[in-house]
């Protein structure tokens, strides 16, 4: 089964967001005796697909202050040695917090699909 449930609040206010998670049955021969899980990036799939708006950093204005990195709930912003931030669009959920906290207001939230991917560096 492949589920694509956004904001399912049937049981859970805490949005059980299951996004393109492939939950094909394992078959018990390949299953452990009890449900212990291994740390994984993308445990819920590519959460970037949840986005409606993309955060876009204007690197000309960016002061490398790391504030967006500090506040990103998803840990999708990585920093170069000098503090230059990069957003992993595969997983960014598009919450817009980075744009809100940026002291120089140099992150724009643009509608998905309108981002110029060339701009990114």
């Amino acid at each position: 089964m492949s589920l694509r449930v956004r904001s399912c609040r049937a049981h859970s206010g805490c949005v059980l967001v299951v996004n393109e998670v492939n939950t094909e049955p394992e078959g018990r021969a390949n299953m452990p005796k009890t449900s212990y899980s291994k740390p994984s990036v993308g445990a819920t799939g590519k959460t970037g697909s949840w986005r409606t708006f993309d955060p876009v950093i204007n690197y000309k204005e960016c002061s490398k202050c790391r504030t967006c990195w500090l506040y990103c709930p998803e840990a999708v912003i990585t920093l170069e040695d000098d503090g230059t931030p990069h957003i992993d669009y595969d997983y960014c959920k598009g919450c817009g917090i980075c744009a809100q906290v940026c002291p120089r207001k140099c992150i724009d939230m643009v509608r998905k699909g309108t981002r110029d991917e060339e701009d990114e560096e």
């Binding site: 059980l16 094909e24 299953m31 009890t34 449900s35 291994k38």
Partner: peptide
Amino acid sequence: VAHGNIVFPEHYQEFRYS
């Protein structure tokens, strides 16, 4: 490792069988 996070209907029954 994490023990006891969510298991969906696809697998729950197999854990019980075990």
